[in-house]
Nucleic acid binder design. Structure first.
Length: 425
RNA sequence: GGAAGGGUGGCAGAGUGGUCGAAUGCACCGGUCUUGAAAACCGGCGAUGUGCGAGCAUCCGUGGGUUCAAAUCCCACCCCUUCCGCCA
């Protein structure tokens, strides 16, 4: 959420900055609501002040043993007025909150203009896509040939967009998870955390999935309003919801977390229907950082480095793009996508998305710290990024490491996790 | 699932319906002392909203209710602890 004071004192400026996203801020309705709020709030507070003063007077009179009956008569209709005023205030405030809760984050200065994926700007490439001297297969074919990657049986078990892995492929999948967790802990200074895969509405509101994007989520049939997590970002970031870290807290706080992710993919019908690019359930190793505001730009760069490091170690070619205004997510101020080379598509495809949310999520969550210099409470900045999406990494390994005979070499760094195996099949 | 107790400031922990936004301790910030640090002592120190500001308002798990007045009384819900039962 944006700072409401900033939005209502500079609505034109905010609207202008949001244009980069292709978002139109309804300045007029915000101004009108704000004006109503101001009036109702001040009259309500005046009534409250009077009630408080009178009540105090009654208490004092009573303590002195005076007759309070006339005083009671004076306040008779105050109560009804207050009830009405408070109800009106609650209503206008929740209307205003609802409007503000639906306004996306302001893109960072350096975010390029543009309204779609086409306008994202490549900032670097690493590695050289391999030249194959045979016809490349896609991971579905490779998996079928090796045995152990089965989409059809998953359809029987559940439906479309699920996979079953067995044997070496299941083990390779698990190896990727262990490998990434180890690297981020041992080399990048993240602390591992394990969290619930089911969260409540408050958590989803905190990170910005609710109220606007409910259709992307799997909701449990349970009267407690529980949802399956779409990413570890939700539980991990919400660890600090409603918290004030004390002055000596050691920031930045860097956490790494492996979870499954569940996405309804509503609105993606027909897209990436083959293989494991786009599944309802996939594993992901997520990096989350909580930092002091002045550190957040540097933190995003380092988080991006940490994610790229995994691809470098796996020797998978990739490119990194900065998303344009029209393509960044609702809560993000700035996002880099890392795209890995997919031989069967002869394209780079997203494998990680690293974002800075600045204080947008922190404000929704009330995630704060006490600044030791000023001794004042300030909002933290939050960041996160995939480090990496496991299903897509598995896919990339299978395709990039495939051999003419249908076998697949095991990347050097993963061999220890596979009992020393150097190839599958 | 049954029984009992409890949710109060960054933490711990008081609080007969009426100057209680809340004692006290710890932590934190400033200072005195000290070569320096520690200790000791003195002072300060909740959050949010609103206003230039003095201030005013709101907040004691959440939501309702009673009352002129609620941290305090009533109801519902959530969560925690202990005991019993069940259980991976």
């Amino acid at each position: 959420m944006l700072d409401s004071k900033y939005v209502r004192t500079n609505p034109e400026e905010v609207a202008d900055k949001l244009k980069k996203r292709g978002y139109t801020l309804d300045i007029e309705s915000i101004k009108a609501l704000e004006e109503r709020r101001r009036g109702i709030q001040s009259s309500t507070e005046a009534l409250q002040q009077e009630r408080n003063a009178r009540s105090k007077g009654i208490g004092q009179a009573k303590a002195k043993g005076e007759d309070i009956a006339p005083l009671l008569a004076e306040v008779e209709n105050l109560k009804a007025q207050l009830t009405d005023a408070e109800a009106a205030l609650t209503e206008v405030q929740s209307e205003l909150d609802a409007v503000l809760a639906g306004v996306p984050n302001i893109p960072a200065e350096e975010v390029p203009d543009g309204l779609s994926e086409e306008d994202n700007v490549e900032i670097r490439r690493w590695g050289e896509p391999r030249a194959f001297d045979f016809d490349v297969k896609d991971h579905v074919e490779i998996g079928a040939q090796l045995g152990g990657l089965d989409f059809e049986v998953a359809t029987k078990l559940t439906g479309a967009r699920f996979a079953v892995m067995r044997g070496d492929i299941a083990r390779l999948h698990r190896a990727l998870i262990q490998f990434m967790l180890d690297v981020h802990q041992n080399e990048h200074g993240y602390e591992e955390v394990y969290v619930p895969f089911i969260v409540n509405k408050d958590s989803l509101y905190g990170t910005g999935q609710l109220p606007k994007f409910e259709e992307d989520l799997f909701k449990l049939n349970d009267d407690r309003d529980f949802y399956l997590i779409p990413t570890a970002e939700v539980p991990v970031t919400n660890l600090l919801r409603d918290e004030i870290l004390d002055a000596k807290a050691n920031l930045p706080m860097k956490l790494v977390c492996h979870t499954p992710c569940f996405r309804s993919e509503a609105g993606s019908h027909g897209r990436d229907t083959r293989g494991m690019i786009r599944q309802h359930q996939f594993e992901k190793v997520e990096l989350v950082q909580f930092v002091r505001p002045e550190q957040s730009d540097a933190a995003l760069d380092s988080l991006l480095d940490n994610a790229e490091a995994i691809l470098k170690k796996l020797e998978l070619p990739f490119r990194t793009v900065i998303l344009c205004g029209g393509d960044i997510g609702f809560s993000a101020a700035k996002t880099y996508d890392i795209e890995v080379w997919i031989p069967s598509q002869a394209k780079y495809r997203e494998i990680s998305s690293c974002s800075s949310f600045r204080d947008f999520q922190a404000r929704r969550m009330k995630a704060r710290f006490r600044n030791p210099e000023t001794n004042k409470v300030e909002l933290l900045h939050t960041l996160n990024g995939s480090g990496l999406a496991i299903g897509r990494t598995l896919l990339a390994v299978l395709e990039n490491y495939q051999q003419a005979d249908g076998s697949v070499k095991v990347p050097t760094v993963l061999q220890p996790y596979l009992g020393g195996k150097t190839q599958l099949g």
